[in-house]
């Protein structure tokens, strides 16, 4: 029982990171139907920025705001300069561009911060570990039915719930949310009711990248360091989460992320002999396959139905 609860909470906090990256994927997909392959790497760049701010002595709260701000700008600029010009050509062109951006950002991170886990006393980092948003000393845990649950796990989980609540308000009760929904539903008609669709797309990309930045920082905090490979598997899990929840449903992305996180941890823990730590990425692949075969629109996605 203790082990189960522990794995459950570890899974939820791990899954929260997937949720955050998946949320970014979904926000962009809803607006344009594009899958942003660089979502994880955009987040990683911002995570490095947060590390750098920490090196300069800024508290993690301020660093996070700067990192998310950089994320917003990065996303918005990417949409305007890279995506918009090729989006007119084809979906495939956008796919290639985001793939290129994925490579470029990882190369850029390497060029600036070198291929090593940071912070690193060997290169003179001032920080001992990547700053966590929540208490994460070995003594920071609560006892739940005998299981030691890290405060950090609980904090991360709550953070995702709060963020989801904010997004829910955005999509359902604001003009910007209405405009985003309208563009997602029918971009041509959105123009005809006077929505500035270009602006909406730019803001969507910015928002997605800012949320991704939050995900990267949370994950680096759990992981205690940031390195060039940090987001590779996260991105794969996040894609699985978005597929599971439905690519056009923010709520689905959150739930999908949490479910994948839990499944991953349970599979690695309980089916140790044949899944274990090495094969657990395979869990994501299995989930993607099963969802696509059984319910292609995902748990909460809208199946495209049209009355004729």
């Amino acid at each position: 029982m203790e082990l189960f609860l522990q794995r459950l909470f570890d899974g939820l906090s791990q899954g929260s990171v997937y949720s955050l990256i998946a949320l970014g994927l979904v926000i962009i997909y809803r607006g344009t139907g594009h899958l942003n392959f660089a979502q994880g790497e955009m987040a990683l760049f911002c995570t490095y920025v947060v590390y750098q701010c920490g090196e300069w002595g800024l508290p993690i709260g301020i660093s996070l705001i700067i990192g998310m701000g950089v994320g917003f700008a990065l996303g918005a600029v990417t949409e305007v300069t890279l995506i918009r010009p090729v989006a007119k050509k084809s979906q495939f062109a956008v796919f290639i561009v985001t793939l290129g951006l994925f490579q470029f950002l990882n190369w850029l991170d390497g060029a600036i911060w070198k291929d090593q886990p940071l912070p690193n006393s060997g290169v003179g980092s001032n920080q001992t570990s990547f700053p966590s948003l929540f208490p994460n000393k070995p003594t920071d845990f609560v006892n739940v039915f005998g299981a030691a649950i890290k405060l950090q796990s609980i904090g991360v989980f709550l953070l995702v719930l709060v963020l989801f609540g904010l997004l829910y308000l955005l999509f359902n009760y604001t003009k910007l949310g209405l405009a985003m929904n309208a563009v997602a539903s029918n971009a041509e008609s959105a123009k005809l009711v006077g929505i500035r669709t270009n602006m909406v797309l730019m803001v969507s990309w910015g928002l997605a990248a800012a949320i991704g930045a939050l995900g990267g920082v949370v994950f680096a905090g759990i992981n205690s360091n940031v390195n060039l490979g940090l987001m590779f598997t996260v991105f794969i899990y996040a894609s699985a989460a978005a597929t599971l929840g439905g690519f056009d449903s923010p709520g689905g992305a959150v739930l999908g992320g949490l479910i994948i996180g839990v499944i991953e941890n349970m599979a690695a823990g309980y089916a140790d002999e044949w899944v274990g730590q090495e094969l657990k990425v395979g869990v994501a692949l299995v989930v993607i396959l099963v969802v696509l075969l059984v319910k292609p629109s995902g748990l909460f996605g809208t199946a495209k139905v049209e009355r004729v």
């Binding site: 929904n181 309208a182 041509e188 005809l192």
Partner: peptide
């Protein structure tokens, strides 16, 4: 204001949200 040809509504949005979107300007 233009009423586009065919079904130019926002199919995933509610009737009410369609009207709200019409008033977005």
């Amino acid at each position: 204001a233009q009423v586009p040809q065919g079904r130019g509504t926002f199919p995933e949005l509610s009737v009410e949200d369609n009207l709200r979107a019409g008033a977005i300007t």
